[in-house]
Design a protein around this nucleic acid. Structure first.
Lengths: 232, 232
DNA sequence: CGATGTGAAGACTTTCACAGCA
DNA sequence: TGCTGTGAAAGTCTTCACATCG
């Protein structure tokens, strides 16, 4: 009945780690490793082996007891789970510094996220070339999203324009948003928004630095930090 | 006895939200709002009011019952807790697309993280100007870190060079690292590393998109996603 | 025998609900 | 009275420890 097998929901924390495992496994595959134990994968990923096993168990029982996991098959399964078995067209809003870096970076297309269009509200930017793509005026957004079935939008505008960008993306039919502007954007329920804010990251670091200094001056020491990288 | 008052440890989850509150509170302050309830702040931050109160309670009792929080004072306290009461010099490793975007962005200096130097291993890049700063050869790193008391380093190199960059930063004396390369970097215990990987973010989004599609085709619907952004 | 898969314990985080203070 | 500050409950995530199976 259902064309995609419906599986148990995977915990957010696990979803956030799958891309890391995938990256490591892909590298191992390129290096010629065909099999890996949870212990080895855990070491490479810097996490606990039990966590690796539990994470992978959400995908199904793809390991072999006494042996480990077949790298190639695991790569296939993780890719499938992450929706990487086909391409996802994306649009980028904002052709400034950041928008240019993102499209020039090349990582999008290469990793299965072809850039269907870059948009800017500034007429001076429109029609310039950025990373080989012509910058389009914002009012062509809805048309491109529809024509190319875009479901993911990237916001690379200045902070003041970010909410408007998000609203336009949602109106155009985009359902997932990656926001690089240092501001929160609101979206209706059912739309997934992830914000990557460099200054938030810097402030978390300086909090730790600040504690280090405080601890040092009271002649004590601090320990390292484990980190995640998720969305909220 | 201790020059910096030692306070209870603040939970990681709270530390990750303080920059968000700070951003909102600063904007409110600029807009002339002098007082805010936990309910109002929670709405602006898109979180639960109890969470806001609990988070702020780790800083101390800075609210007034029946009234709310004085914005200006709270901004001061959060800034102090995050170590934003003074500047933190940073170095950027890698003067490619990303390194250029980061320095051109201007957000660093403006937000209290002056760029003490940009470094690249490529002789062709050395001595070019990036965001008004001269690119230096990598072997000047240690000297700059020492001379300018740099404790935060940003990795903006290609993935293959990231681990070497991290090693050099640690050797030079940097204790916090923000890694933008799409690869894990290892660092000794006591060094804080946070990784921001765009393709990880994209993959988390496509996971949700993929579920949306699967759910739609089995005539059910999905809900939105809350996100964090931390390090591991 | 060795490594997976997983109940159960423990740690951390969020949310509730209300006592207590301005 | 209204809103903070916080115990306690609920929920989520991590880790342990071991039964299970190749």
């Amino acid at each position: 009945m259902s064309p995609h097998r419906t599986r148990r929901r995977i915990p957010d924390a696990t979803v956030a780690r799958l891309p890391i495992y995938l990256q490591i496994l892909s590298a191992q595959l390129d290096g010629g490793t065909s099999n890996l134990s949870s212990e080895e994968l855990a070491t490479l990923a810097g996490v606990n082996a039990a966590k690796v096993r539990k994470d992978l168990s959400y995908l199904g029982s793809y390991g072999t007891r006494g042996v480990g996991y077949e790298v190639q098959y695991l790569v296939y399964q993780i890719r499938r789970e992450l929706g990487l078995d086909h391409e996802w067209n994306v649009v980028i809003l904002g052709a400034g510094n950041l928008g240019q870096a993102l499209s020039g970076y090349g990582g999008f297309t290469e990793r299965g996220y072809p850039i269907a269009g870059i948009f800017d509200i500034d007429p001076d930017k429109v029609d310039t070339l950025v990373g080989g793509v012509r910058v389009r005026p914002l009012d062509e957004l809805a048309q491109v999203v529809a024509a190319r079935s875009v479901s993911i939008g990237v916001i690379a505008t200045p902070p003041v324009a970010a909410q408007d960008a998000a609203d336009r993306l949602v109106r155009a039919g985009v359902t997932s948003i990656l926001n690089f502007a240092p501001t929160l954007v609101n979206a209706p329920l059912g739309i997934t928004v992830r914000t990557v804010d460099m200054s938030v990251e810097m402030q978390i670091l300086s909090y730790h630095e600040q504690r280090r200094v405080a601890a040092a001056s009271s002649l004590r020491s601090v320990q390292a930090d484990g980190s995640r990288n998720q969305t909220a």
